[in-house]
Amino acid sequence: MFTGLVEAIGTVAALEPLDTSASGGGGTSLTIKDCAEILTDAHLGDSISVNGTCLTITAFDKDWFKVGIAPETLRRTNLGSLRPNDRVNLERAVAANTRMGGHFVQGHVDTTATIVSVTPDGNALTLRLRPRDQSILRYIVEKGYVTLDGASLTVTKVVDQGEEGYGYWEVMLIAYTQEKIVTAAKKPGDEVNVEIDIVGKYVEKSVQSYFSQGAGGDFAVLEKIVGRIVDEKLKKATM
């Protein structure tokens, strides 16, 4: 479990495909350096978030650590596109005394998103993102949380289906955040790892389970919910 508050920015030292060593821990081995500040209390087997992906430390020294990446993780994330000297967001798993300044982040990437645009707004930056898996947009809500490359950010706008033919959402990076995460340096066309707020998934499954009971589910409640949503949409459309 993580908070989405990036602790350090590390540098990719090596990405070795088809690693078969005992310490590899996966189909591909990733070595990160320049991160001594988060390794002072490290142990083999510890979880660490690399660009929002929960991975296991399989080897480490004072200034570097190594993790194994499974094929499924490579398919889900942008880690496979990393190259030596690329920079990555890092966060250690939460401790019992950690302040929850972000939100509950699992480190389980749902999909990637492409940066469509980066627009200055004063000293802040607005990023527009198009998810590879458009179905996750149902979990993205304005003023809700979303994790991008391991950083907990607040959604400022959601468009389920834009004139461009796809849905997208936007987040804003304040000046302080820009200095603390690698995502601020990315350009249109670059990909970021996305983890949606797990609460939305639990709510969806609970609602589906409730109404799948047929006569046991109160469909009048569902009608009221849908009616309220439709009314709100119509109201916005006429404003």
Rank of each mutant, 00 (worst) to 15 (best):
I140M: 12
N123V: 04
T111A: 10
V118P: 02
D121I: 10
I115E: 11
S135F: 00
D149V: 04
Q134G: 01
G122W: 00
V146W: 08
N123L: 09
V141T: 11
T119A: 14
T112V: 14
H108L: 08
T126Q: 13
I115R: 04
P120S: 05
P131W: 05
L125N: 03
G107I: 12
Y145A: 15
A124P: 04
D110C: 00
S117A: 15
Y145K: 05
V118Q: 14
G107R: 07
L125H: 05
R132T: 11
L148D: 10
A113V: 00
L137Q: 03
T111D: 06
V141S: 13
D121A: 15
I115D: 10
L127D: 03
T111M: 09
L137H: 02
D110F: 02
V141C: 08
H108A: 11
K143N: 12
V109N: 06
Y139N: 06
T119Y: 05
T114Q: 15
Y145D: 12
Y139G: 12
T126Y: 04
P120H: 08
G144I: 09
Q134R: 02
V118D: 06
L148A: 05
L137M: 15
R128F: 05
L148M: 08
D110I: 02
Y139V: 01
H108N: 07
V109W: 06
D121G: 00
E142G: 02
L148K: 00
H108W: 07
G107E: 11
L129S: 06
L137G: 05
L125P: 01
E142M: 10
Y145P: 05
S135A: 12
L127M: 13
L129I: 03
K143G: 06
D133N: 10
I115F: 05
V118K: 15
L125Y: 00
E142N: 07
G144F: 12
P120E: 09
A124E: 04
T119C: 09
R128Q: 14
P131V: 09
Y139E: 09
P120Y: 02
T147A: 15
G144A: 14
K143Q: 14
L148I: 10
V116H: 10
R130H: 14
T111S: 07
P120W: 00
V109I: 14
V146P: 06
R128K: 13
P131F: 10
G144S: 13
V146M: 11
T126S: 11
L129Q: 01
S135I: 01
A124I: 00
V141A: 12
D110G: 00
V116C: 12
L127T: 00
Y145S: 15
D133V: 02
